[in-house]
Write a protein that binds this DNA or RNA. Structure first.
Lengths: 245, 245
DNA sequence: CGCTGGTTTGACTTGGCTCAATCATCGTGG
DNA sequence: CCACGATGATTGAGCCAAGTCAAACCAGCG
């Protein structure tokens, strides 16, 4: 998605041996900007196993969470029990910023893999931001970037068909991996077809079918969770975007 | 106040001549929080005629805009020219907060009616927030609330069918009118069927058909832009929500 | 009057959903 | 070690909600 502005980028000379396939991956290389380090220093890291919730909708809001390593899904649960996946946070991302001011969390974030997370008490964060303009600005930036992201996905759901949505999704993942120093072509999907479908407003069968068709067309190779993008140009065309950079 | 303001809106508890959208009303009735008044005081009001852009995607970001009166649409324009409407700001709303930190605006906001707006230079706003914790907190609140809103609509596009989307849309309008002191049952749609469709990820024909069917079922009365909600319970059921009050 | 922009309604098509069967991979316990 | 579920993925057949195309219709305005 064109709007995937990673606030923090690219000067990572990441060793290519560390592949997304290898499980938990570190983030030292990604996300070095002054304020972030200090913000993360407000909390202490802990591990969370696959399948456990980092926070749940309805919980009292006290903290935001920094994803240090691993993969997760952000879920909005409707009153009738249906679930909409809102995104797949990656290392360097901060989750629960939409709950600031709300009193309680509105979303649930679940680890898709073993995760290292840092719980950052919002009170401390707000206090730091009050005396450090760069920290406040960092917060505005993260929140506004999150808004722009949601806008892009809203447009994708409103305007795109299944092919376009899946192409957009794959390119978004690709760019985010690449921004973190991993291959833009080969990576591991951490989520099931059903989860991709929920995120994109499609059924798991449709996701599977589109994968198969894309493979038949030579756009990519996919087996289970491993994926290799072969024809990025075609994918970008489908996603109605140009590569960013 | 304009000639075309219909007398149908007479049962609101404010001045009966005041239409939800066209009358300028002070910020005191809605969203009264200390910081907002001071924030709005950072800029000067000006009028914008129907059809003109308050800001355009691509413009350099310098300000956010407070909607004092009138109605508008927030639009995301894709590279291929297609448009996705992201929302319909009402008086009391602040637009362009997603552009903070981005350098340029990513969305376009167009007046659907004559609007009174206040351009608030972000530099001044940030400076005020730097020394006034309550102002900073107000900003966090607005941004996180905006994120939660987008989440809801994302879920609506991902999970709801045409009926459910339109019911959700009408109830959202209803609640926002009611929060501003107007009737929750009878109000004026300021946007075309095509604009509603764009917002909800539907075609204008589908929107029209669903309106007709809802009318046949006795859920509402609609003629052109005037709408009256008759069976709120049924609409809430369709929208999978309970009334918030 | 007769445009013009917006709306309604109808006939038809289709993309993606539902239901269902099959298959692959992996972890577990006998 | 293999048999066995269990979980996830693939694929097919049929169907339906919403899209497309097209024709009226309607109100407001010059």
């Amino acid at each position: 998605m064109h709007a995937h502005v990673s606030p923090m980028l690219s000067n990572n000379r990441q060793s290519s041996t560390l592949s997304p396939f290898s499980g938990a991956y570190s983030t030292r290389e990604y996300g070095r900007s002054g304020p972030l380090d200090e913000i993360v220093a407000l909390g202490r890291a802990r591990m969370v196993t696959e399948g456990t919730a980092i926070h749940r909708a309805g919980d009292a809001f006290r903290s935001v969470f920094y994803i240090k390593s691993g993969a997760a899904k952000r879920v909005l649960i409707q009153e009738d029990g249906r679930e909409q996946i809102l995104g797949f946070p990656m290392p360097g991302d901060i989750v629960a910023i939409e709950a600031i001011s709300a009193g309680t969390h509105s979303t649930t974030v679940v680890a898709l893999d073993i995760c290292a997370i840092v719980e950052i008490p919002f009170e401390a964060l707000e206090a730091l931001a009050a005396e450090r303009p760069d920290v406040a600005r960092f917060l505005y930036q993260r929140m506004s970037a999150a808004l722009r992201e949601e806008h892009s996905w809203l447009a994708a759901l409103g305007l795109f068909n299944a092919d376009e949505r899946l192409a957009t999704f794959l390119l978004d993942l690709s760019q985010r991996f690449s921004a973190r120093g991993f291959s833009a072509q080969r990576f591991m999907l951490r989520m099931t077809r059903a989860e991709i479908g929920s995120f994109l407003g499609l059924t798991l069968e449709t996701v599977s079918r589109v994968f198969s068709r894309f493979q038949k067309l030579g756009l990519l190779n996919v087996t289970r969770r491993e994926i290799e993008l072969l024809d990025m140009d075609a994918l970008y065309k489908l996603a109605h975007t140009r590569p960013t950079h």
